[in-house]
Design a protein around this nucleic acid. Structure first.
Length: 436
RNA sequence: GGGGGUUUGUCCGAGUGGUUAAAGGAGACGGACUGUAAAUCCGUUGGCUAUGCCUACACAGGUUCGAAUCCUGUAGCCCCCA
């Protein structure tokens, strides 16, 4: 990552200055020109989003925040969902040919993603954000016309030189003509937006650099206009992996896919080495607080002041104050002591994302329910042997109390609430068992 | 087409006809420590109606009191000759 070069011409409270100290500028075209443009008045900037799912995930958050920063600085953001380009698939950074989405799936994805954008961008007021779908202008564009208008302006030699194309050509997976053409579509988007919405700036992740510059070239040829591009670094961990992923999969913004608690915890456990970068990239925490958090992390990392602040900020942004409240309450209980005297309702909200299963209540009658069977019913263990082993290892907890007797029979007195027992395997793997 | 080799548990990798559910390592999972970290240390790591039983060393058969270990056939992989 390039260090923030101090430049006298750039005041820190200008947008570019802010992006710089946050380390958000990976590459940009004609920075002084861009600076002048931004100083000259409210501009329009766009970023494209791939509608590959019904929800955005943490990876897209970088880009959304970028738009948000532009908007807060008085510019108009355009969030472009790729209804058309999504049908093709961007080869950038992908090692394999994408599966094409169906038109219907695509529409569902676009709708879901759009709803989330409304939370982060302001769609009212003077520089109201716009949400556009390139399917709207691409669907009626005939192949012949497109080739004459756009394709003509693309030297194949230049296209072959792009990193995204070259790396795929060298790989075994190869590159289909469809994916090869992707670049033209995205380039045309930029030109379309420049012409129809006065949008002269395209931002994006660093993997979009090739597509961005392709659009700039096309703008010069088709419109004779100077366009600008700026890319942000990718959000990666210190060991080079993409952030926003756990073993279980991506961290989504949709609370039904990733609960507020899980979301909160994700940020709270970010590695020391990565936390400041996350704060810089993803939040609007200012320079002063950033510096003090950085100092706090260095001097007393065990307090994890930066992680806590990050988690709090992110959770409020995506899930609101209420989401944060739920998440912190859940954290206290999950990492706290014994659970007893709870109600079904409170356990239900605290363990919202914990898998739960139902068992017939009559199991508790008579001799009671054998714990080995109970553990298997929760899915925490795959076999009776594993259950016994887990108990022997001291890795089984009922209502947060360790259970070491593998012959234990559970009875109604072991219920944490009216109908629920809380099982835990190891430090933090929970499961609920409902006796109905 | 002919000759030789190889095939082991999640992965890598030992394995003498008989305490071999299979050394060792990795991974994973627990535990201790800790900052809900990293590192480290310890333990566990086929299944079950469980002081015993069953299923496992590519697959199918055979020899033997007894086989992952020997034989035959089938399949996969590798090398040499044509």
């Amino acid at each position: 990552m390039p260090e923030n070069k101090p430049e006298n011409s750039l005041v820190e409270n200008s947008l570019i200055g802010e992006l710089k100290w946050r380390g958000l500028i990976h590459q940009s075209t004609d920075e002084t020109g861009l600076q002048k443009l931004l100083d000259s008045g409210s501009q329009t900037v766009y970023i494209g989003f791939d509608p590959t799912a019904t929800s955005l995930h943490v990876g897209s958050l970088m880009q959304l925040m970028m738009l948000r920063r532009f908007q807060k600085a008085g510019h108009r953001p355009i969030a472009l969902v790729g209804g058309a380009t999504g049908m093709i698939g961007d080869p950038s950074g992908k090692s394999e040919e994408r599966n094409l989405l169906t038109a219907q799936q695509l529409q569902e994805n676009v709708d879901g993603v759009a709803a989330q954008m409304r939370m982060l961008l302001d769609f009212d007021g003077e520089n109201a954000a716009m949400l556009l779908n390139n399917f709207d202008w691409m669907q009626g564009y005939s192949y012949l016309e497109f080739l004459r208008d756009v394709g003509k302006n693309f030297p194949v030699g230049a296209m072959m030189g792009k990193e995204s194309v070259r790396s795929r050509l060298d790989s075994e997976a190869g590159l289909s003509y469809t994916e090869f053409s992707y670049m033209l579509l995205q380039a045309y988007d930029f030109v379309y937006l420049a012409k129809n919405h006065g949008c002269l700036i395209q931002a994006g992740g660093s993997d979009q650099w090739g597509n961005v510059t392709a659009g700039i070239d096309l703008g010069r040829r088709m419109l004779g206009q100077q366009l600008f591009g700026i890319t942000a670094p990718l959000l990666t961990t210190s060991d080079g992996k993409k952030m926003g992923k756990t073993e279980k999969g991506a961290i989504w913004l949709d609370p039904d896919r990733t609960s507020p608690y899980e979301f909160f915890q994700y940020w709270r456990t970010v590695d020391d080495a990565d936390v400041m970068r996350c704060i810089a990239y993803l939040t609007e925490i200012d320079r002063q607080e950033y510096d003090s958090l950085a100092a706090a992390t260095a001097s007393e990392p065990e307090k994890r002041a930066a992680q806590n602040r990050l988690a709090e900020w992110m959770t409020v942004l995506i899930h609101g104050d209420e989401g944060l409240a739920t998440a912190t309450r859940a954290s206290e209980i999950l990492f706290g002591g014994e659970i007893g005297d709870a109600t079904d309702a409170s356990l239900g909200s605290i363990f919202a994302d914990v898998p739960s299963s139902e068992v017939d209540r009559s199991n508790l009658d008579g001799d009671g329910y054998w714990i080995v069977d109970a553990l298997q019913a929760t899915g925490l263990v795959k076999s009776g042997g594993e259950a016994r082993r887990a108990i022997k290892e001291g890795g089984v907890y009922v209502n947060n109390t360790r259970e070491t007797d593998e012959k234990k029979r559970l009875a109604t007195s072991d219920l944490a609430s009216e109908t629920v027992m809380v099982f835990r395997r190891g430090k933090r793997k929970y499961a609920l068992l409902r006796f109905v």
